[in-house]
Design a protein around this nucleic acid. Structure first.
Lengths: 205, 205
DNA sequence: CCCGAAACCACACCGTGGGTACAGCACCAT
DNA sequence: ATGGTGCTGTACCCACGGTGTGGTTTCGGG
């Protein structure tokens, strides 16, 4: 890795920690600069402004999370052939993962940016849109496979169901932070899992 | 109403308009001062800092929303005696209300504060915790009444179910803002409604 | 071994925004 | 007439994002 990329990565690492802990607005460039042991000029050499930093962070986060979700899918596929079972296992694995985070989910960079989106330019907003649409597509695929095998008991739009998973995760992170209960996020994933189970389980039990 | 209270209310009104339109951080005190036709000193006479303004706005918002939710409960109670039906009607009414907002839900003050630590102090965070706990209590009560009549098909913690409603609303607001689809919020309320319906409906259909 | 580009540093400076400090004035009630 | 309430006006401070310019180190390729 070239020297420039190392510094760039260090800046992103420092920034990510600070942003997840305190929010984007609360993280000053001076602070990042001090943490990464560079100068302000050095920072602006790598990122033309704070927007560029935000965009880079979001894109990196999407990449990381994609890999993590792919990993969960892979493990779920190993444990079951049935698409519904796979979806249920996937959600259980996610819940376990969330529960293992001692301080709760560190908070979503995307959500952070969404709630402060007036601070950011069009590029950041676009990055955010792509992130959410990526989740929607992924979750929809998972539920669509289940729906193909098991007719849902209630008429439900698959995009809505995918959004529900996304929404409940994001919402749970918010609640968990607001009330200071880290485990809320995992519990909410399990709550939605219970819905998926009910929705796709055969009518005659 | 005393002269001071009139001015105070005017400041809050102006601030609320600006904040709902552009977000809290994008709304400067100078701007509020200009809108309310007072001076900066006048502003700081009424609010010691921006935190005090935020706290006042959140408390006012909670009050407003409480009244709105009470109203929905009242209307639902008029339309049905059955607690499950009441809950379902309540959620439908909420969805309709959300759908009637042309630009989508303006965004939750509580959520923004969760993601901004420097901008808001401990007092604001406390107000937020109270808000979320208030929702939990309210929603739990609604679902508990339904659960008393109809044994849930799946084991579910009522606090979790209450949180799910709260989470899905907050999460949906985030998604709706990220992808620019105002109707997402209402659709998500309806999605959770479908869960509630399935969860509490009698086993033999 | 040297050159040139990439990767910084040092420093000075600007505008905006939150916030402070304090003196004073107008109005109203007692 | 007097004292509190509700402001105005002015001057000022600091943090932060951001710009600009000129200089210096580092390092790989010819």
């Amino acid at each position: 890795m070239a020297k420039g990329e190392v510094t760039r990565k260090r800046i992103l690492d420092i920034a990510q920690d600070a942003v997840l802990a305190k929010g984007f607005d609360a993280t000053s460039i001076d602070e990042i600069v001090a943490g990464a042991e560079i100068t302000k000029s050095g920072f602006f050499y790598h990122f033309r402004d704070k927007n560029a930093l935000a965009r880079a962070m979001i894109e990196r986060h999407i990449e990381f999370e994609d890999q993590l979700f792919d990993d969960l899918s892979h493990r779920a596929a190993e444990l079951a052939d049935d698409p519904l079972q796979r979806a249920l296992i996937w959600m259980k694995l996610l819940a376990e993962l969330l529960d293992d985070m001692p301080g709760g989910h560190p908070g979503c960079v995307v959500a952070t940016a969404v709630y402060q989106d007036r601070l950011f330019d069009q590029g950041v907003r676009e990055a955010n849109r792509r992130a959410v649409e990526g989740w929607r597509k992924r979750f929809r695929g998972m539920f669509a496979a289940a729906a193909a095998e098991y007719p849902p008991r209630e008429a439900v739009d698959l995009d809505d169901l995918a959004d529900a998973l996304c929404a409940i995760i994001e919402g749970a992170i918010m609640i968990s932070r607001a009330v200071g209960e880290p485990r809320v996020t995992a519990r909410q994933v399990m709550t939605l899992r219970s819905y998926v189970k009910l929705l796709f389980s055969p009518k005659v039990s």
